[in-house]
């Protein structure tokens, strides 16, 4: 990953309503820098429904369509179809939803849009819980985490849902993960998504200092540590699910160090950290093995 110039274009203004250190806000700013003004956004219930600002204000200088929680993908599909029938084939339509609106309540509509391969970019900003409603667990919340519905006496026991595999099973043309700590990587992925027709899914790790009980200034660092500790691998799935590329060009860091700065993991005991570290390593190995396996299938190597 080589450093690049940050595009000067700003389609997101100051004066938005996000908390300090909000990863979701950084993610939007980066995405819009590469998408440009011919973009329409669809935003369901999520933090961004509020971050955008109250009527008649908007922090984003683009058309935004706010919609019901479970409908981001399909409203984007409808919007794209409506624009095309009006003769506008240029506008990129991007659904922009949180992990609750993607992994949980919005999964059905997203699956439908992906199966139809509707021409939309779907970005899930993943802050690993229902942050807008006050930090409740979602199926994206990692094992061990505290939330207001998984208190320390009964913290989350279930692993995070593997949304990437679910999307890969739809054979859509482009899937990627990203992290707010690697904006150029993210922007390159958004740019690539814009150039492809069909359903594109990007899931960006977007720390929520408020919900993770962490100092705001640790937002970017934790987004970096999640990647280098292999908790949140950066990957791309192309060729309709047949090709996987995992980013490995980093100095591995400690899972424990990543977790320990976050209050949501404070209650965990040493042996629980041990188990989580083992699980992270096993998932990483499996991912790398899958990358190799897919690369070894004849006819699929570029």
């Amino acid at each position: 990953m080589k450093p690049a110039v940050m595009p000067l274009e700003e389609l997101m203004g100051s004066g938005h309503l996000a908390c300090q250190g909000c990863g979701a806000t950084q993610a939007m700013r980066f995405a819009l820098k590469v998408l440009g003004p011919e973009t329409a956004l669809v935003i369901p219930a999520c933090c961004w429904a509020v971050i955008d600002g109250t009527f008649p204000h908007s922090a984003v200088n683009l058309p935004i369509y706010h919609t019901a929680f479970e409908t981001a993908a399909v409203v984007a599909s409808g919007l794209k179809a409506g624009l095309e029938m009006r003769g506008d084939t240029e506008t990129t339509v991007m659904a922009w939803a949180g992990d609750g609106g993607t992994f949980d309540i919005g999964l059905q509509a997203l699956s439908g849009a992906a199966e139809r391969n509707d021409d939309i970019i779907y970005v899930c900003y993943d802050n690993e819980a229902y942050m807008n409603t006050g930090i409740q667990r979602s199926s994206s919340t990692p094992v061990g985490a505290w939330t207001t519905t998984t208190p320390v006496t009964n913290y989350k026991r279930e692993p995070k849902k593997n949304m990437i595999d679910i999307m890969a099973a739809h054979s859509i043309p482009y899937i990627a993960t990203a992290s707010t700590a690697y904006p150029h990587d993210f922007m390159a992925k958004v740019k690539k998504a814009k150039s492809i027709r069909g359903t594109k899914y990007i899931q960006i790790f977007a720390p929520c200092p408020t919900g993770w009980k962490m100092a705001p200034e640790l937002s970017v660092k934790s987004a970096r540590d999640a990647v280098t500790s292999k908790v949140y691998p950066l990957l791309e799935i192309t060729e309709h699910g047949q090709k996987l590329k995992v980013w490995k060009d980093f100095e591995p860091t400690s899972v424990r160090d990543y977790m320990k700065v976050q209050g949501r993991f404070r209650h965990l005991k040493d042996e629980e950290f041990d188990q989580i570290e083992k699980d992270v390593e096993m998932k990483w190995q499996r991912l790398v093995a899958k990358e190799k396996m897919l690369a070894s299938i004849p006819g699929l190597i570029e």
Binding site: A49, G53, T54, H57, S58, N61
Partner: peptide
């Protein structure tokens, strides 16, 4: 919805 005349629809 028109990128030449951008507005936010249905926000808070």
């Amino acid at each position: 919805i028109d990128t030449k005349d951008p507005h936010s629809f249905g926000n808070l």
